[in-house]
Design a protein around this nucleic acid. Structure first.
Lengths: 275, 275
DNA sequence: GAATCATAAC
DNA sequence: GAATCATAAC
């Protein structure tokens, strides 16, 4: 079950939570002002490069190719893979770091509520989640450590401002793994079973409307720790993604004011980094 | 006509092209993970602070208060003001730096096409535009000089890597004023006459749909240099904000693919900075 | 799922 | 003008 190929590289760009695909064609530098209104260049490329995408007849099968051909993806997309699991960066991250754990085994097509009734499978997933959580945690430390109060002693050693300990071990610093949440959606949008493993910030350009937010900020999101789910657990059925939006960090209620929430999340993100 | 009060400060936050109002209430730092789903805090603030906003019965009069009471605004909003003009930072910037020049004189309620038929008024506006353009240019230099090829010699002196010249004058560097566009919309959205003075990048979170982009990237935007407008100038009438979106810098046609354009603009922004 | 478009209500 | 909501077409 374990024994995954080690390919942990997460590149800045892909995981940045900015634009999904960066089809970068460095355009010839022209004087911006002279080109202002009507670019006089003769043959401008007629349309944006089609983002090289795999064809799926059902959009709900968008994750299938990752478990079928994980080796065909860049290390910025597929974080690691093994015989039983593939870990990827979400194509449309809803937090600044947002990964998915995809099982390659027979449980993959089941609803997670049912799949996690199998204790062996659940145990295997938990092990992978722990691993992936740590990868995400290290990424957070790498990005936000320089802003973190708890990481100051560690950063000082890293910066050479303070001598390392005799044993060469860095100060531990902030427990970034604790800033990572892992779970599944009560009503998954993709057929293939996927566990979301993401930073708690919910700070991303790809988070664009209420359902995006609430699917990671209400009971719609079921933490992996809560499985196996009781038969009468309410989350097996009802879910209301149209409910008021509330800040994950301070609880402030934004009603249906998504734009206001987004502003607020940017502020909370900066405060959160500082902890 | 001239002789404006000098209040040129443009603060990072306000002009950043990010969120409009930053109502920052530093929330008590809680453990993010423990607070994940259901903040247990007793009395969470019930709703976001209403952004202290002046009431206007007609939304098209949103600029009036700036000329009536420019002194009541922070220096991050009102850049400078005098007896005849007020310069402000646009509340919803469509470029990384986006300012507005507002006349306080009798021409203020006319359509700019007509107002600029008055040579004296046009001359006064031109003078102000030149001033404001330079303020914007200096802001661009301050922000993006460190990324600019043409500004390398200047930056090296600023960084102390190279000795200043004997006369103490910095290398001139990039002509950032040339990266600023100034003009008016063929069909202004606000009643009060306003001249847009903005960086050419059109890189801003507030740029959210096709009409936003095209209103600053087609003939809908009439440069101040083009006035007075000929009686038969086509721009006096037709305008099509629904036309295909084309990159201001390389001319690439994005059709109606706004999301793709946005990605591209982010790339072009970085290339543009480097010039 | 993403994304474009049209439409109220402010 | 901004912003929420609903709705095709992919």
């Amino acid at each position: 079950m374990a024994h995954e190929t080690s390919k942990d590289a997460i590149t800045e760009d892909e995981i940045a939570g900015t634009a999904p695909t960066a089809s970068s064609s460095a355009s010839p530098a022209r004087n911006a002002f002279s080109a202002l209104m009507a670019p006089k260049r003769k043959a401008a490329p007629p349309s944006p490069k089609p983002a090289k995408k795999k064809y799926n007849k059902d959009m709900r099968d968008g994750l299938d190719d990752y478990i079928l051909h994980p080796e065909t993806y860049s290390s910025s997309r597929v974080i690691y893979y093994g015989s039983a699991f593939v870990a990827i960066n979400d194509l449309y991250p809803k937090s600044s770091v947002h990964t998915l754990l995809l099982p390659r085994t027979e449980h993959k097509d089941m609803h997670p509520f049912d799949a996690f009734d199998d204790p062996a499978f659940l145990a295997a997933v938990r092990e992978q989640v722990k691993k992936l959580r740590h990868i995400v945690g290290k990424e957070l430390q790498s990005r936000y450590g320089p802003y973190s109060k708890q990481d100051i002693p560690r950063e000082k050693v890293l910066n050479g401002e303070v001598e390392p300990a005799e044993d060469g071990v860095l100060p531990v610093g902030r427990d970034w793994d604790k800033e990572v949440m892992a779970g599944i959606h009560a009503h998954p949008s993709m057929n293939h079973l996927h566990v979301h493993v993401l930073s708690v910030d919910r700070y991303s350009e790809c988070l664009k409307h209420r359902k995006h937010y609430n699917s990671f900020a209400t009971e719609f999101f079921v933490p992996i720790e809560d499985f196996p789910l009781a038969k009468d657990d309410e989350r097996r059925h009802g879910h209301d993604l149209k409910q008021d939006m509330k800040c994950w960090r301070c609880g402030m209620n934004f009603g249906n004011k998504f734009a206001k929430l987004k502003e607020h999340l940017a502020e909370e993100f900066k405060e959160w980094r500082k902890e």
